[in-house]
Computed example of a mutant assay.
Amino acid sequence: MPNVYCIDTSSLIAAWQERYPIENFPAFWVKMEAMIDGGRLIAPVDVLNEMKKRSDELHGWLKARPAMFRELDDAVQIEAAQVLAQFPRLVGERKLRTSADPFVIALARVESVQLVTDEKPTGSLNRPNIPDVCTALGMSTMGLLDVIKAEKWVIG
């Protein structure tokens, strides 16, 4: 069975703005869209909402692909509340006021799918990023480059 990935805002921003801009790597975004269409690239709706504040162009691209986004059903909300109860500093003053992070972790856990983030671990649960919390929860994470390798994409 093919992998399903739950992607974080950080990976989408890194791809769009730094690594694979659509004007230089259109084939990358065609492959991303195919994964969305196949139900293999998902994110909580909070990622779309968070993107409004970060990138108008990427928000527009994502908004045109609603199949990617999952509403926060009861199971995801309960899991996110448990994650925040255990790791309250995951959402802090240093982050954007609305943070999709607990919902990304919760969705990946509820759906039992691979979490994709380009955040780096801080090594401290006093100031955790997604990888720190996932390690503490016994979950693995991967970056977008790991997805490209796992999917055996050749671009260009």
Rank of each mutant, 00 (worst) to 15 (best):
Ala108Gly: 09
Ala81Lys: 11
Ala85Leu: 14
Glu57Met: 09
Gln77Asn: 10
Lys63Ala: 07
Asp56Thr: 10
His59Trp: 05
Ser55Gly: 11
Gln86Asp: 01
Val113Leu: 01
Asp73Trp: 00
Thr117Glu: 14
Ser55Arg: 03
Arg97Glu: 01
Ala64Trp: 04
His59Met: 07
Pro88Tyr: 01
Leu62Ile: 15
Arg109Pro: 06
Ser99Val: 04
Glu93Val: 11
Phe69Ile: 14
Val83Asp: 00
Glu71Asn: 12
Trp61Ser: 12
Val76Arg: 00
Val104Phe: 01
Leu115Ile: 13
Met51Ser: 10
Ser99Thr: 09
Ala75Val: 15
Gln82Asp: 03
Ala64Tyr: 01
Gln114Phe: 02
Ile78Tyr: 04
Arg65Val: 15
Glu50Arg: 00
Gly92Thr: 12
Val76Met: 01
Phe103Tyr: 11
Lys52Pro: 06
Phe87Asp: 01
Ala85Val: 00
Ala106Arg: 08
Arg97Ser: 06
Val113Gln: 03
Ala100Ile: 10
Met51Phe: 04
His59Arg: 02
Val104Met: 06
Asp74Ile: 15
Lys52Asn: 11
Glu57Leu: 09
Lys95Glu: 08
Pro102Tyr: 03
Pro66Ser: 02
Asp73Arg: 00
Ser55Met: 07
Ile105Ser: 06
Pro66Phe: 01
Val116Pro: 00
Arg70Glu: 07
Arg54Phe: 15
Gln86Thr: 10
Ser99Gly: 14
His59Ala: 14
Leu107Tyr: 00
Val116Gly: 00
Ala100Pro: 08
Arg109Tyr: 03
Met51Val: 10
Trp61Lys: 08
Ala80Cys: 14
Glu93Cys: 13
Ala67His: 03
Ala85Asp: 00
Thr117Val: 13
Ser112Gly: 14
Lys53Arg: 06
Glu111Pro: 10
